[in-house]
C-alpha cells in the first residue's frame, strides 16, 4: 500500500473544497454561504452573461441586406433561405434617376440546422448579419426554430457593441448599425 499520507492529502483536498464552498469568506466571516462559495450558477434564477463575441443567435439588419445570396451559398449546411426582388427606389439626389435596389421577401435561418460556425456573418459584404450572445430561443416544436426576417430583425436589439482590442492590435473596431 505504501505510505498513508497520499490518502490523507486527498481527503484534505475534498475537505478543503467543502469548507471553501461553505465559508467563501474564509475565517474572517465564518458564516455559511454556500450559494456564494459554489462555482455553479442557479440557472433560471441567475444567469451568466456570455462574452460579447459569443455566437448565440444571428441577427439581421434588414436595411443593409441586398439579397446577394453570399451567406446562403457559403453556409456549410445551407440553412439560410433568401428570396428577393428588385424594386425602384426614389433617387438619392433630386432630379436623378430612380435607383434599383434589391429588396428581400424572405430571409429565413433554420436554427435547427445551423452549426453556429459564423461563416455567414463573416462573408456578408454589407454588414447585414451580426452575432447576438442571446441564447434562450429554444422551442418546443422544431419547426419554430426557423426564424423569419422579422424575428431575426428583433435580435438586432440584443447585439452588443463590438469590444475594443487588446494592445498591439491593428484591427479596426467595427460598428453595429443603430436599430
Amino acid at each position: 500500500m505504501g505510505l498513508v499520507p497520499g490518502l490523507i492529502k486527498g481527503l484534505g483536498v475534498t475537505g478543503g473544497t467543502m469548507l471553501r464552498t461553505i465559508f467563501p469568506d474564509g475565517l474572517k466571516k465564518p458564516i455559511p454561504n454556500p450559494v456564494k462559495g459554489a462555482e455553479t450558477v442557479q440557472y433560471p434564477h441567475e444567469k451568466e452573461s456570455p462574452p460579447t463575441r459569443a455566437r448565440g443567435v444571428i441577427a439581421l439588419h434588414e436595411e443593409n441586406c441586398t439579397a446577394c445570396m453570399l451567406c446562403a451559398r457559403e453556409c456549410p449546411d445551407w440553412c439560410i433561405y433568401i428570396e428577393g426582388h428588385k424594386e425602384k427606389a426614389p433617387p438619392r439626389r433630386a432630379g436623378g434617376k430612380p435607383r434599383k435596389v434589391n429588396a428581400i421577401d424572405r430571409f429565413d435561418i433554420d436554427f435547427a440546422l445551423c452549426m453556429f460556425c459564423g461563416i455567414c456573418v463573416d462573408v456578408c459584404p454589407f454588414d447585414a448579419l451580426f452575432w447576438s450572445p442571446e441564447y434562450e430561443f429554444s422551442e418546443p416544436r422544431i419547426a419554430d426554430l426557423l426564424h423569419d426576417k422579422s424575428r431575426l430583425a428583433e435580435w438586432m436589439e440584443t447585439v452588443p457593441a463590438f469590444e475594443a482590442y487588446e494592445a498591439g492590435s491593428e484591427a479596426k473596431v467595427k460598428q453595429v448599425p443603430p436599430t
Binding site: 463575441r53 459564423g118 475594443a164 482590442y165 484591427a171
Partner: peptide, 9 residues
C-alpha cells in the same frame, strides 16, 4: 479571424 479582445491577457 479576429484579434484578442481587450482585457483578455
Amino acid at each position: 479571424k479576429d484579434d484578442l479582445p481587450a482585457g483578455w491577457i
